[in-house]
Simulated assay, not measured.
Amino acid sequence: MVALLWLSPVGPASAWDRKVKQGETIARSNCARCHAIGRLGSSPLHVAPPFRELHARYPVEDLAESLAEGITTGHPTMPEFRLEPDEADALIAYLKSLER
């Protein structure tokens, strides 16, 4: 029964897929001008780490609070931006999907 629910188009798998897709859209519109956001390619800004490598630096879940409160870095070209909590969750889901 659990396996059927997991494969169901209205079950948890599709909710995860929607969240990942929303996160990819957020990354494309907010981050892609500097970061490589996909599984391949170099970042347009060479100092911006590719998203697919972030999990090797730290747990991407640790970004959730920063994304919701206004992420800032020591790098002067990184703009400060703030996401709604559900948007931050979606972006984290997308980053997690790149770990596979």
Rank of each mutant, 00 (worst) to 15 (best):
M1L: 08
V2M: 14
V2G: 09
V2H: 06
A3G: 06
A3Q: 10
L5R: 08
W6Y: 10
L7H: 09
S8R: 07
P9D: 01
P9Q: 04
V10Y: 02
G11Q: 09
P12N: 04
A13I: 07
A13N: 15
S14M: 01
A15Q: 11
A15I: 10
A15R: 08
W16S: 15
D17T: 10
R18P: 01
R18C: 07
K19F: 00
V20I: 13
V20C: 15
V20Y: 12
K21Q: 13
K21F: 05
K21G: 06
G23S: 10
E24W: 05
I26R: 03
I26L: 15
A27V: 05
S29Y: 06
S29A: 13
S29L: 14
S29D: 09
A32V: 07
A32I: 02
R33M: 10
R33I: 10
C34S: 08
C34N: 05
H35Q: 14
A36Y: 09
A36F: 12
A36N: 13
I37P: 10
G38V: 03
G38W: 01
G38Q: 05
G38M: 07
R39E: 05
L40R: 04
G41P: 03
G41F: 10
S42R: 15
S42V: 12
S43C: 14
S43K: 09
P44R: 14
L45W: 07
H46F: 13
V47D: 12
V47F: 14
V47P: 01
P49A: 01
F51K: 11
R52W: 02
L54K: 02
A56Y: 03
A56N: 11
R57S: 02
Y58M: 02
Y58D: 04
P59V: 03
P59D: 15
E61F: 06
E61W: 03
D62R: 00
D62M: 03
D62G: 06
D62P: 00
D62W: 00
L63K: 04
A64Q: 07
A64V: 01
E65P: 01
E65F: 07
S66I: 01
L67F: 10
A68R: 11
E69Q: 15
G70H: 13
G70T: 10
G70P: 06
I71R: 15
I71Y: 12
T72C: 09
T72K: 14
T73C: 09
T73G: 13
H75R: 09
H75Q: 03
H75M: 08
H75W: 09
P76D: 00
T77A: 04
P79H: 01
P79T: 00
P79L: 00
E80Q: 09
E80T: 09
E80S: 06
F81R: 08
R82N: 02
R82E: 13
L83Y: 06
L83P: 08
E84T: 01
E87P: 04
E87S: 12
A88F: 13
D89W: 00
D89K: 06
D89S: 14
A90D: 02
L91K: 13
I92S: 13
I92N: 11
A93Y: 03
A93D: 08
A93V: 05
A93P: 01
A93T: 02
Y94L: 15
K96D: 13
K96S: 09
S97R: 11
S97D: 12
L98W: 02
L98M: 03
L98C: 08
E99A: 15
R100A: 15
R100W: 09
